[in-house]
Design a protein around this nucleic acid. Structure first.
Lengths: 237, 237
DNA sequence: AAGTGGTCTAGACCACCGA
DNA sequence: CGGTGGTCTAGACCACTTC
């Protein structure tokens, strides 16, 4: 057997996810029946069901009563995928751009972000104006615990993708993000930076991003112009 | 026993939700231990756990290992499931309500909804003011092709769930919805109905809903107060 | 009819929390 | 320590899909 501390159903979950990642199971493929998996992995059917149930909740598998369990067609519904600003813009047919407004190392995060970043160490704060086809579209403020990312503060960020750097050079895999979306009026500073009238409302996104170990590695606040941005999404029952 | 067709765990789920709705269980309250619920409702503990697990997934309950199971506080993030207004409110710990503003049968849908409803027949337009804890929170305008739903126009809708009627009496299964979310300022009529100042921005949701045959059965526009509503969501890579 | 997932039982032992 | 939720078993029968 494997690690005795890890629950059996989590081991099976991992096994299935890896088969999907390695391409041995492709979208639309059928999984072996639950009874067979139980025999194969030497666990009871209820334990198999717990593993599968969690994967179904994560939209990775789909159950069809009387038919079988299948790998979901598109793991995550279109428009609900976690996208970087650049990816998002490209998907909308716009040219992404970036202008660094601030890049500082701080000890205390701002009051409105402190709740999520109960950090013990220093924090890199990166504030960027985000452009779409050369026009300002959003203001993005990102907080990263600098202790996890040696030398990250020396990077430029003007035209580099932060997520690409984290993934390729710091082996961070982004898995999940929690997002709150509010609507409000812009502050005077925001309306100036975004070049909008004070009467144009904005989206305010507050995002907490998790890595492969389910640890928070980023807290981001973004303010988007309400007159030039809309959210498109698909939801399922 | 109750209805023999309904699974036991769903009966228990309903029981718990009703206790929350009636105020017998308030946010932060402890549920009876699983073993006690099992005895009380004459079912096995695993069945109790299935009911509770689903409510935990819907962010209605929270489990604390070694301590107990609690009713979630209203600020807890909600999932990415397709929810009716009532379900959404319940998940936030608020009491849903409804007031019909308009219920008419029309031939031509309004210009801003026509694109999605290339309908050949008549349309039922239902406009409701949606309440949370008795205060106005949203204005919802729903268009349904009336030819598909015989006699639906005779229903009251004041305190009936539209989705429940469609599901139970017309065998419609809701599978998917496409949503656009914009932010804008309210019209004078909207700010009056929602009881907000003209300077409070609003969310504008435009939703197209699909049934089990992937056919559009509903087009809905909803306008939510920006000062009292926020979207909570999880996204995955 | 055969095979699949859906529901359910009556136990067992482990891991964590709080007094 | 006792009580809680967390994991797990080895069955059983039901409901649905597919042939």
């Amino acid at each position: 057997m494997n690690n005795k501390k890890t629950p059996l159903y989590k081991q099976l979950k991992k096994e299935i996810i890896q088969k999907i990642e390695r391409g041995e199971l492709k979208p639309g493929d059928v999984l072996p029946p639950e009874r067979e998996l139980a025999e194969l992995f030497e666990m009871s059917r209820m334990t198999v069901r717990q593993a599968i149930s969690e994967l179904v909740n994560e939209y990775i598998l789909i159950r069809r009563h009387g038919s079988g369990t299948y790998v979901a067609e598109s793991k995550i519904p279109q428009g609900r995928r976690l996208k970087s600003f650049s990816e998002d813009m490209r998907a909308r047919g716009l040219l992404p751009g970036s202008k660094v407004l601030e890049k500082t190392i701080i000890v205390e995060p701002p009051a409105n972000m402190i709740a999520d970043l109960k950090s013990e160490g220093k924090i890199l704060m990166l504030k960027r104006l985000r452009l779409a086809d050369l026009y300002p579209l959003a203001i993005e403020t990102i907080m990263l615990p600098i202790e996890k990312f040696n030398n990250l503060e020396s990077r430029n960020f003007e035209n580099e993708s932060l997520y690409r750097i984290l993934e390729e050079e710091y082996s961070i895999k982004i898995t999940k993000a929690q997002q709150k979306i509010e609507v409000r009026m812009p502050t005077p500073q925001e309306s100036e930076l975004l070049e909008i009238n004070y009467s144009v409302p904005v989206f305010h996104f507050k995002q907490i991003t998790f890595d492969q170990n389910n640890e928070i590695f980023e807290v981001a606040h973004s303010v988007y112009r309400g007159d030039r941005y809309e959210i498109n999404t698909e939801i399922y029952s």
